[in-house]
């Protein structure tokens, strides 16, 4: 939206004064460089997508350059037949759904009271929260706390210890502060509305844009996370997709998937599987991305406003 504003503001200028020859060359360079950047970013993505739907033989012999060769969905078929991967997928869906809800609820619960001027001690609490962004006890002490609460090797370990991100609290708080007028609260207070009711029936409906930002950021973060799972989980049946991915692609441990196949076929397939897995793991996020990009940008901009 910001970009279109600039374009309309500057359109008349361009019409009245023509670009000089030097400017034309400059613009040509700009367009060329940006075009190359575009290619450099999009090419690997297309390559992976193409590989994932090519035949195993084409992938292993390096015949895929841009478009799929001998289209086959064998990789995906094998993936969906592998219980380990489907379980990881299910786990990830669960962690993302549950984790996001917990995170958003907790974030709103702390951000809203702190956005209210009548809340005593809010600056102290805010300082305490911001401080955790600058300094932390570190990996081991945190691990020991999680262990003390008996969350090691349980689903809770991925939902609770990293539930609230300070940055999101700051964004949400500044949104509440700037877009919910005090007068609204004064009016509802006179009508005998309690704080909780006010939150439920005034604040939440008025804050849809920020809730969308919170849901998306936490959701994507949770879907993409692997580190907490790596340190806190031991049982393979709890692993999220990212961890399954790690063992298959990065640690090259695809035996469990291709067990039943013949040697040559197995090798070819394991190569193809890596591409298919990447596609399967990334697609949910990248598909919704063009529709929600607006909210992400919004969230970043709210956050960049100081204070």
């Amino acid at each position: 939206m910001a970009s279109s504003k600039i374009a309309t503001q500057q359109a008349p200028i361009r019409q009245t004064i023509k670009d000089s020859a030097g400017d034309k060359v400059f613009l040509f360079i700009v367009y060329t460089v940006l075009f190359l950047v575009l290619i450099a970013v999009i090419y690997p993505l297309i390559y992976i997508l193409s590989s994932s739907i090519s035949s195993p033989a084409a992938v292993t012999s390096g015949r895929v350059w841009l478009w799929p060769v001998d289209i086959s969905f064998k990789g995906f078929k094998v993936l969906f037949d592998t219980p380990q991967i489907m379980q990881g997928y299910g786990n990830s869906l669960f962690y993302t759904a549950a984790g996001t809800i917990i995170s958003v609820v907790l974030t709103v619960m702390i951000a809203y009271p702190m956005s209210r001027k009548s809340f005593f001690g809010r600056s102290v609490i805010m300082m305490l929260i911001t401080f955790t962004m600058l300094f932390s006890g570190g990996l081991i002490p945190t691990y020991m706390v999680v262990r003390e609460f008996g969350m090691i090797d349980s689903r809770w370990a991925l939902l609770i210890p990293n539930a609230v991100w300070v940055w999101q609290v700051i964004i949400a708080r500044s949104f509440f502060q700037n877009s919910i007028p005090d007068e609204l609260f004064e009016a509802s207070e006179i009508d005998g509305c309690s704080d909780i009711r006010f939150m439920r029936s005034v604040v939440v409906p008025l804050s849809k844009p920020i809730l969308a930002v919170l849901f998306l950021m936490y959701g994507v973060g949770q879907w993409n996370a692997y580190f907490d799972a790596l340190i806190y989980l031991k049982s393979a049946n709890l692993f999220p997709l990212q961890l399954v991915l790690r063992s298959i692609i990065i640690m090259n441990n695809s035996a469990s998937v291709t067990d039943a196949l013949k040697q040559v076929e197995r090798q070819q397939l394991s190569e193809l599987l890596k591409y298919s897995l990447i596609v399967v793991a990334t697609l949910p996020v990248l598909i919704i991305y063009p529709f929600v990009q607006r909210y992400f940008v919004q969230g970043m901009l709210v956050g960049s406003v100081k204070g």
Binding site: V220, W223, N224, Y226, L243
Partner: peptide, 9 residues
Amino acid sequence: FISTVVMVS
């Protein structure tokens, strides 16, 4: 939006 694991993959 690509996760670290996928990026490294």
